[in-house]
Design a protein around this nucleic acid. Structure first.
Lengths: 102, 102, 102, 102
DNA sequence: ACGCAACGCATCCGCC
DNA sequence: GGCGGATGCGTTGCGT
């Protein structure tokens, strides 16, 4: 029993150390980012606006991805044979797919 | 004028791209961390407890650091000569209140 | 229907007023605190150091609390019977890593 | 000298304890506020919207206050005789009045 | 005017 | 799928 728990303990220690290591690195990157902002400010840029710009660009990217995903869903629906009977005009190929929207 | 603004614009672009790059990496690390937790959970560890352990260890470290900087600040105050001559009622920069804590 | 919405509205009004009242008081306390610092400064204390001292003491308290809750969480895990029978490799909720800290 | 520093220490201790006490109360109020939001949520209100409402009302109040202050400044300027020669359109009634700022 | 710290907000993850 | 809690981000205010 001792050896078993010992193994578990060793495992746990490893997990925790890995996580702490990764968080260290993450923290380091956060500091790097701060520094870049500081540099930008030092040469006269308005960091507040920069942040806005970055966040907008981020949203754009997210939006693009969402649309790609949506497209994938459509393509899948077609391939999968979920396609409504061809020739039936009342069954739109590009139907709501409501859950994808939410 | 065009060239001047062009330069600034170039600079800005560089700053923003650097930041976005760094944030990408940061995001990657966050994902790595999540994954480690997932692995730990998969072999039976309680992630909630793990998180608690990690946060406590983190606080330990932070507290040690804080105390060090507090000490620095004391020393600085003394060295700085801001310390009034003893007997001057207007003065002690800040006496140790350690015993008051308990 | 009118009376129903009227009731909800009344309720909402009460909630909001209570919150606003509480925030007023909070703001008042913040001002009191500022004032105490001002007094201390007026008689020659270094407020920067005072702030540091207070923050360190705060961290002390927080750390103590965190450790207590961590302990609780350990006990809970044990009591809860979630603890696997010793020898079950899938199991230890989270063994004490105290020695790993140093 | 010992007694002098002793006095200062006592004073410092008092200041710090007063501040800590006040911060305790502040924290208590913050918790109360959270609780009220929780209650509101429990009976079906959207706390996000509530927050918006409260912040808008706050801004309104601030705006009103700003305007009152501005009015005071005007009145002061008139009473104080800092008023530019009447009839001179180039000398704005709302001139800097720097000391009013303090 | 600057940097720092507190606050509130939005997001995300885990739990129910 | 909703809810609560935790984390990280951005904003504001304070002190220097």
């Amino acid at each position: 029993m001792d050896s078993v728990n010992g193994i578990a303990q060793e495992q746990l220690k490893n997990f925790i150390e890995r996580i702490e290591r990764l968080e260290e690195e993450k923290k380091g990157l956060a500091e790097d980012i701060k520094e870049v902002y500081a540099q930008a400010k030092a040469v006269g840029f308005d960091t507040k606006i920069m942040r806005k710009v970055i966040s907008v660009r981020k949203m754009d990217r997210q939006e693009r991805e969402e649309q790609e995903t949506l497209l994938d869903v459509y393509l899948h629906a077609i391939e999968g044979g979920d396609l409504p009977t061809a020739g039936d005009p009342t069954a739109p190929a590009a139907a709501p797919v409501t859950d994808a929207a939410e």
